[in-house]
Design a protein around this nucleic acid. Structure first.
Lengths: 69, 69
DNA sequence: TTACAATTACTGTTATAACGGTAAAAACGT
DNA sequence: ACGTTTTTACCGTTATAACAGTAATTGTAA
């Protein structure tokens, strides 16, 4: 029912990668607080920082709309 | 070949919705500069601001990974 | 071309995310 | 239980995104 939670997804992937928040932060080139905030679903993080974290975890982002074919 | 451009997508959708940058900004509750920046692919915008703009344009975001089934 | 509308670019101010440090609280293993 | 690691929470400082002007440039329609 579409209550998707990005924070949980990030956390799950990080765990499966065997990384701590600090290690992930360093790999992504962001501060540990940012990783913490992302996992807590704080949406005021910067888009580029979120992207950097997702990239490390091999999570792809897709944008779709009714106009998308 | 995967040179996806979010800025162009936002611009296209905005045009098709018949909105100016300023109108979109107001609808999304962000400043006009932010809309401009998004269309220019400036990735340092805040995630929540980007989300607000995408929502107005009815663009959905999806996160996928090899672990996603 | 001429007006008008929209976009782009720049500026100064304000709000706040990012960051590292620290410390307390949870989680984990032995 | 115990010690170790990780996570959570809070803090002060710094960097910078967000914002509303404004003006210049580009685009559009007549």
């Amino acid at each position: 029912m579409d209550n998707f939670n990005l924070g949980s997804m990030v956390r799950d992937h990080r765990k499966k990668a065997g990384l701590t928040q600090l290690e992930l932060a360093n790999l992504a080139g962001v501060g540990k607080t940012t990783v913490f905030d992302i996992e807590k679903n704080k949406e005021t993080v910067r888009w580029n920082n979120l992207l950097a974290v997702l990239e490390v975890l091999n999570i792809k982002v897709e944008f779709t709309s009714p106009l998308t074919k």
